[in-house]
């Protein structure tokens, strides 16, 4: 259930559960093989659903998923960079990165990885991911039992402290994001204004396409006259941007 919930995109931590299951199996209180097969099987249906949505809806579904995450601005970029750097192998390791495990399947659909390839890679990724965490739990079951019993002795206090830390973290991220979005909303420009200014040959406007190579390949169109500088190259190519003009940046 935890694995299924996490792959759907809900903020549920499946890793502690996998560790716990491994530890229980190590202590002889659970059958490891059954739990392992269940974890692997639970991750495939939601991944396949996200893959199909990514394939049919493209970047929009990725944007929607990333909006749920705590770091939406870097979420899409991180996923795309992972695919650029590692190609199909990115799917194998994405489950180990918080947030990316949900975002990687629609990205695989977006970049056109064949369905059978995706299914094979996803099963391999689930075996690797569940195997590593359950295996660690299994190997260190004695130590985990000690930790669990100490945590039980601390009782409600431990839960309260961990809960307060989590709430504080989410609140700080939320406030930072709201501040940033407010500043962007003020400066935002509408497509109608850009079109009008481009048609009137307004030379105070400079349009920059900041999409990654993967995004450009998925949607091979651009605003006329736009300069393409992928976001990851912006520091290197910053000199190409004029300081005395309005710079319109756009992504997918």
């Amino acid at each position: 259930m935890f694995v299924l919930a996490e792959q759907i995109g809900l903020p549920v931590p499946a890793v502690p559960v996998l560790l716990g299951v491994g530890a229980l199996a190590g202590a002889g209180r659970m059958t490891l093989a059954v739990a392992f097969v269940a974890a692997v099987a639970a991750s495939l249906p939601p991944d396949l659903l996200w893959y199909e949505l990514g394939r049919r809806r493209g970047g929009r579904i990725l944007g929607l998923l990333c909006r749920i995450s705590l770091e939406p601005d870097s979420c899409v970029r991180r996923t795309e960079n992972l695919f650029i750097q590692r190609g199909r192998k990115a799917l194998l390791i994405s489950k180990f990165f918080p947030g990316l495990s949900t975002v990687a399947p629609p990205m695989a659909g977006m970049v056109g990885i064949a369905r059978w390839q995706f299914i094979l890679l996803d099963i391999a990724a689930a075996i690797l991911w569940a195997g590593v965490w359950m295996g660690l739990g299994y190997m260190f079951s004695d130590a985990l039992e000690v930790v669990a019993s100490r945590a039980a002795r601390l009782g409600n206090w431990l839960g309260l402290i961990l809960g307060a830390m989590l709430v504080s973290y989410i609140a700080i991220k939320f406030v930072q994001r709201q501040r940033f979005l407010r500043s962007l909303r003020i400066a935002r420009i509408t497509p109608a204004e850009v079109k009008s200014r481009l048609e009137s040959a307004d030379d105070t406007l400079f349009v920059v396409d900041t999409r990654s190579a993967l995004d450009v390949r998925a949607v091979p169109y651009a605003i006329p006259g736009a300069l393409w500088i992928a976001a990851e190259d912006i520091d290197r190519r910053e000199r190409e941007l004029p300081r005395d003009r309005d710079i319109v940046v756009y992504c997918s």
Binding site: R188, D244, V248, V249, Y250
Partner: peptide, 10 residues
């Protein structure tokens, strides 16, 4: 003088 495009390319 940075102006993000509302709604992006979509």
């Amino acid at each position: 003088r940075v102006r993000p495009l509302h709604g992006g390319l979509a």
